[in-house]
Nucleic acid binder design. Sequence first.
RNA 1: CGGGAAGUAGCGCAGGCCGGUAGCGCACUUGGUUUGGGACCAAGGGGUCGCAGGUUCGAAUCCUGUCUUCCCGACCA
Length: 492
Amino acid sequence: MSKTLTTRNEDYAQWYNDLILKSGLADYSAVRGCMVIKPHGYALWENMRDVLDKMFKDTGHQNAYFPLFVPKSLFEAEEKNAEGFAKECAVVTHYRLKTDPNNKGKLIVDPEAKLEEELVVRPTSEAIIWNTYKGWIQSYRDLPLLINQWANVVRWEMRTRLFLRTAEFLWQEGHTAHATKEEAIIETKKMLDVYATFAEEYMAMPVIKGVKTANERFAGAEDTYCIEALMQDGKALQAGTSHFLGQNFAKAFDVKFMDKANKQEYVWATSWGVSTRLIGALVMAHSDDSGLILPPKLAPIQVVIIPIYKGDDTRSLINDKCANIIQQMQAKGIRVKLDADDSTRSGWKFAEYELKGVPVRIALGARDIENNKAEVARRDTKEKTSLPLDNLCEQIIDLLADIQTNIYNRALQFRDEHITPANTMDELIAILDGKAGFVSAHWDGTSETEEKIKELTKATIRCIPINNVEEAGTCILTGKPSIQRVLFARAY
RNA sequence: CGGGAAGUAGCGCAGGCCGGUAGCGCACUUGGUUUGGGACCAAGGGGUCGCAGGUUCGAAUCCUGUCUUCCCGACCA
């Protein structure tokens, strides 16, 4: 099987597509804009999901599930939100098919079965959730209400890209209700921190926490916070968002509570989400021309053991040793796989597991056993070393931790080297066209200026970093006064 | 929604201009030899050439329509 990838230098976009397909993360499907997540990709998502789910529960949230369909009248209740999503909604108009009288064996939509009210396939669930919350919240004693749901959503995108932008995707959406504005803002920021922690500690992907400008804000939110990551081609990627929704949805859906002073008040809301897009981010943050590089904490397989047979006489000796190592590793909770398949040779396996991003590979042959050693290769640097078998398990645990740290540091260094200040439009354009990455520049704070810069450069303001240093300056485009630099980048 | 490209075996492609009973590589099956960086030998199996019409004695090939997918733009997590 020829599974060579297009290199990143040749064509970054093609490299990404090749990698996703050939590493077995996902596949195209017969449905326009929709992909199939294959077992390797889904296992990765399950690991991400499990970690996040625990983090949500540790911060007091509970899971629930709301319907896929939203009646149009509910959907349009919060106007800004509805308008924001209107152009990309799939809509169910009928509930039945029938056989085509003019074309045997074919089906047509039954015109008799038109729905009285169209159903919108959720692009996000605020509407149905807030409609439900109305019935759940009467008193301040019912607050805060901290709910998360794991679900699929549909956004009818014109152009799709595996994991980064597909018509249907998997995500989680948290929806919380609070008695006070302050508490809702704290929740918004807390969940942003959860995302940042997850990205950095588990995905080994450094992120910048920030606030979106009005242009980039979630429709219906007062403030949108985000984590922005930088990909190896110098493009930014929004990896997660957390919204302070104010009382917009409470007012639209009439969700009030009685406070301690016996007064009716609207509740304060947040919502926050991350999606399977994180898989795309993970791929582009670390991987190389040989394949995926997965962080050990999330890798579906952390260690693969490949026996090297030579003749039949040492076969059972090697098998016994492998079984022994696997037993020890499993006892320590390492996700380990033995590949003793006789129909492919070791060289093929080496390449295959590199493609799949398995962090550590152990090759074990008669020669190693004789020397009481194993050949250990780490995926991130491709270094091979010979380690003693005696306390192999402990050494591998250390190695996995080292790989996790190393790929984070590597990505961090790349990210930090790609935050460049610019003081003129020419500088901004030169950086974007050259080294790319984030560009830190002064902006006068208006949407018009942001739009204009986007037109001129195709770069958007990714965010205003949280705890940004105040620095007096003049806007890069208009020369008007500015109090701080913001981060521009071309983005996914 | 605009521009481009492509649909022939599971995957990647050739054949098409010049119509004549469908081919290559990889994968797959069986047997054997192998195994420290994508093994080799031998023998096999698999396709109504995206779909629908049309031209023709005859269509993968020519014509018309249609569907789908990918890439580039505008929109988005």
